[in-house]
Nucleic acid binder design. Structure first.
Lengths: 334, 334
DNA sequence: GCCTATTATGAAAGCGCTTTCATTTATAGC
DNA sequence: GCTATAAATGAAAGCGCTTTCATAATAGGC
């Protein structure tokens, strides 16, 4: 790769001038500009962004940390964030924290050492205190899908409890009385919030929590499979299910449960109604199509990107919405 | 962030020594090492990897360029590549080329200007010549899912034609005679190869190509929806389908077609057999579960990562497999 | 055509690190 | 205890760029 020195020599000007035409940071006479551009072209010159970054302490790139790179949920999130930044001429560096505290920390440090201008964090294991410290170090970052009270101005979240409420309330309104629940790992904030919403709805309808209708899964398909097996084993008298509806903490688990229900010869929604959560891309590939709670993940990603654009790159962004509302996507599984 | 200078001052040694304990590039007396480590810890020092990268011309990061960040296919690919590199202490920088030539070029240049030690490219629009030039510039990169004859030692591909063959041959063996085909965009290499395999199987069974049974879709769900509508409109006499089986260029389109077929009251597999391609994560969430061709995308990603580990980071990797074989995943849709 | 007010350009330091080469310090041999 | 050798350390240049400050070129006014 040609360096700025070679360009300068070829064009017969100094480094500073080259830099000025690259960055338009000061006026350059038209004639010299043309010379420089010709030289750059001839050498196929491209500024070394590492050197630029070192000199300016800016990298024009933002770090994104998610739990996993795979899966429909994160990939949609990442995809949207990238699109938003690409529009603005910024780039993304992506890392996965795997819901593991050490890894999350390590990744954050990596992204910081990479001189990212800002971070977008979807972290689950690192403590609130750690994040607060980070904020005190004056690092620019937004948090997605988690609310830290002291950092509320930089948290972009979904009202998970409302989502859980909507799912269950809908079923109750439909007349269901015995509603099973397969949750994600309860230590994860979103999982427990969703369940809270479920309980809230039950309470409103004067139905008591029945923990035999509860199963804590893993947010994966297998969680749904095992959960359904577990719940139905417990509750089937005369091969009949002990519940008429099932709420799942996310769509993967709903799909897993649905598959097992099919295998058992159950007719959905006739014998059993199922509601998922997330409205992930494949949720309308299931049969019957899954009724679920829409998680506007793309919009949240977009908003996080805008937060960065506004606060770090000083772009003129109107309003940053920090709490998003989920809504029920009524399809065929109820 | 503390710099190496501050650490040096605090520890009472020179920069060089600090550098040596960080990189273990030369022996350091145990006692000074301890001093240095204490100083680093006290200051919360982390080497600035941008500066490191500038000084060493190495970044310990590899660039990945895929067509899209979203979707099950790419996210699995990325996820596996990242996992492989994380194990090796390397990091990934991800970009999306959106199947658009200009964007692909621009992204490649970006990744190069970022000083990536190597690139893993999944590009569709950039020309073979461009890639060859890149190779001549002595840039380390592997190409995924595309074979460029002159660069065959750095291409890792799936035998797409074999996949197409397997799908159709299976149906023919089952006795199907009229097999419709919904393809991806034919300008994309993998789409046309798959179709080639389809034709090859037909030929083997002495069945002539019937272009009224062919539809060129977009590799998206909608392609399947429109494709099915198109094919069935053309062929239904007395509300009966003109074909008994349908091969789709990928699973998304298969899922789309399947949904429409359901809506039309068709019983799958009784009235119609469907085969997809890719064996993407949701393909067993469909109902009935989709028979498809397994695309070992994770393995391909892994192999690409190993190529880099071997050729760029000089790790001791045995064999690099460059062509992968697909296989039929027999499930319930046939 | 000369002086001043602008505007364009260049020289050089600095960003935080690595690495070579020279120097200092420790170790061993006698 | 003194030299010969090996081991540990430091000084300084360099990676490719930006940016400040000083200087050179130009334009304008008379």
């Amino acid at each position: 790769m040609a360096t700025i020195y070679e360009v300068a020599k070829l064009a017969g000007v100094s480094l500073a001038t080259i830099s000025r035409v690259i960055n338009q940071t000061a006026p350059v006479r038209e004639s010299t500009k043309i010379k420089v551009e010709a030289a750059m072209k001839e050498l196929g010159y491209r500024p070394n962004s590492v050197a630029q970054s070192l000199a300016t302490n800016r990298s024009n790139s933002v770090g994104i940390l998610v739990s996993e790179l795979g899966g429909p949920f994160y990939s949609e999130l990442i995809s949207r964030i990238e699109a938003e930044f690409r529009n603005a001429g910024k780039h993304v560096i992506i890392a996965a924290g795997h819901s593991h505290e050490e890894v999350e920390r390590e990744r954050i440090e990596f992204l910081m050492s990479r001189n990212c201008d800002a971070l977008i964090l979807h972290v689950e294991s690192v403590s609130d205190e750690y994040l607060q410290e980070l904020a005190e170090q004056n690092k620019a970052f937004v948090i997605i899908n988690r609310s830290v009270a002291a950092l509320s101005d930089r948290c972009i979240t979904l009202d998970n409890q409302l989502g859980g409420y909507l799912a269950t309330e809908f079923l109750l309104r439909k007349g269901h009385k015995r509603i099973a629940y397969i949750s994600g790992p309860m230590w994860k904030n979103d999982a427990s919030e969703r369940y809270k919403g479920h309980l809230q709805a039950l309470k409103e309808y004067h139905i008591e929590e029945d923990i035999s209708l509860f199963y804590e899964g893993d947010f994966q398909e297998t969680g749904g499979v095992h959960g359904f097996a577990h719940l139905s084993a417990k509750h089937s008298k005369h091969s009949e299910l002990g519940f008429t509806a099932l709420v799942c903490g996310n769509d993967e688990m709903a799909a897993g449960a649905m598959a097992v229900a099919h295998d058992r010869g159950l007719d959905i929604p006739h014998d059993l109604s199922i509601v998922g959560f997330d409205n992930v891309n494949f949720s309308h590939y299931t049969y019957p199509k899954l009724t679920t709670i829409d998680y506007p993940i793309a919009e949240i990603g977009q908003m996080a990107a805008r937060w960065v654009l506004k606060h770090v790159y000083k772009q003129d962004i109107e309003r940053i919405q920090s709490v998003f509302k989920p809504r029920l996507m009524l399809r065929d599984s109820c």
